[in-house]
Design a protein around this nucleic acid. Structure first.
Lengths: 252, 252
DNA sequence: CAGTGGTCTAGACCACCGT
DNA sequence: CGGTGGTCTAGACCACTGA
């Protein structure tokens, strides 16, 4: 017999299904090691590639995670709760606290400012130009690392005319962050729009967020508008979907 | 040479990278057929499994989609825009229109009511019991199909005490849907909370949504509260992430 | 029908890790 | 060091498609 044989379901799916059930029913706890390729080959009398395929299914579902030279392990999941609306209230950034402080409490956060630079023309994504109404912008590229793991990549775009000469063009934006600086200049953000997509990351994105296989990213595009309805910031965020729960509270 | 050889990057990654670049630069348009296994074997002088692995990378990224017996094709993407907040305003459901009408216009939508039943005890997820404060609930299980493709699975839970004897326990909830019926009984939903997660689907979930490989799902858990702060509905939704963009508009 | 992707075997060498 | 997962070969049969 060189192929699937009598059963309708492929062998690797049967094996994967058995392991999935074992995980769901707690016979393998989060963090615990699963049977390896050699174990599965012996137990189910299949070739190495078939055992690999079964383990690949679980990894693609985000249920398991391979560590080279060590084994395949059940994944753990403990997300950050990001309260989309409350976190952007003026009370948050009006008082010297950053917006981010609302998301995490008592965890080890590092915000790496990767780049702060003025760009224009073709270097600015056309979607950003359309929203801000100018191709002369400052961008702030940051990476947020929680307990040693990158959880979010962020690029903020500001119209150069609004932020030139302010600390927004420097690494440290000062107490309350960029929104407090915009408010001081009379461009306080009042209205927000967040657009959320989800997809699988490219190989490069997976590397920068240190994502395990089978982990999607969530993309949030936030536009902040001042009282006059002018867009004063566009922020493109890419989140590790395994690290986040997004929450929106609102009235009907 | 039985293995990777001199290059640091695996062969299948090199091949996948070349195809990815070709797609990004438009040499293969959305919907167009990519080189198949046999083409790649010939062109790069590799074994079938290696060519397959390269194509598997693109499918895992959601960039390509295999059709058995036909080939591997560049995927297309045209999402539904779901406006999270406006769609739940009383003007929407107060006037006989369903909430869903706000999302799509002039497209062929079918809402399949899969089950309407009273359940209790262990049959109710404990998270739902905790929120609603009772294990006596009615559930409505639905599937939303747009232009022939399933885009969302939905399960709504209502406290049995609130909905017994109303059309909410029947297939057709009547004009304005379940929210209009709740309002007539004095339990109009006024406050909403939506929690959003994203992950890869299980094999079963992928089947029910007819998902292509490499497509995550977005999970929305919505709780609706009446004016008194009582939870009157919990709705668990599972969306095809390739079919949706979520949008939230709010004041700071 | 010919061609496609899907599954599977039975080997092999490699880089990495310390279960 | 032995065991692990990662990559790769050169075959094979199958079910499905109609480019």
């Amino acid at each position: 017999m060189t192929t699937a044989g009598s059963a309708r379901e492929p062998k690797y799916q049967r094996i994967a299904g058995a392991l999935r059930r074992d995980i769901a029913e707690g016979r393998y706890a989060p963090g615990e090691r699963l049977p390896g390729e050699n174990d599965l080959m012996a137990e189910h009398a299949v070739a190495r590639m078939t055992a690999r395929q079964a383990l690949a299914v679980l990894q693609a579902e985000g249920l398991a995670e391979a560590r080279k030279g060590a084994g395949v392990f059940v994944r753990e999941f403990e997300p950050i709760r990001r309260r989309g609306i409350q976190r952007l209230s003026p009370e948050q950034w009006g008082s010297g606290r950053s917006v981010w402080d609302a998301d995490i409490a008592e965890r080890d956060l590092a915000v790496e400012v990767i780049a702060v630079s003025e760009v224009s023309g073709d270097e600015v994504p056309s979607a950003v130009v359309n929203i801000l109404g100018t191709a002369e912008v400052w961008l702030r590229r940051r990476r947020f690392v929680l307990d040693g793991k990158p959880v979010m990549l962020s690029v903020s775009y500001f119209p150069a005319a609004l932020v030139a000469g302010t600390p927004i063009t420097e690494t440290d934006t000062g107490p309350g962050g960029a929104y407090a600086r915009l408010a001081e200049r009379g461009h306080a953000p009042e209205h927000f729009r967040e657009e959320i997509r989800s997809r699988m990351p490219t190989a490069d994105e997976a590397l920068r967020l240190k994502l395990a296989a089978g982990t999607p990213v969530m993309l949030i595009w936030r536009t902040a508008f001042s009282a006059e309805g002018t867009a004063v910031e566009v922020n493109e965020m890419m989140l590790d979907a395994a690290s986040y729960v997004l929450e929106y509270d609102f009235e009907g």
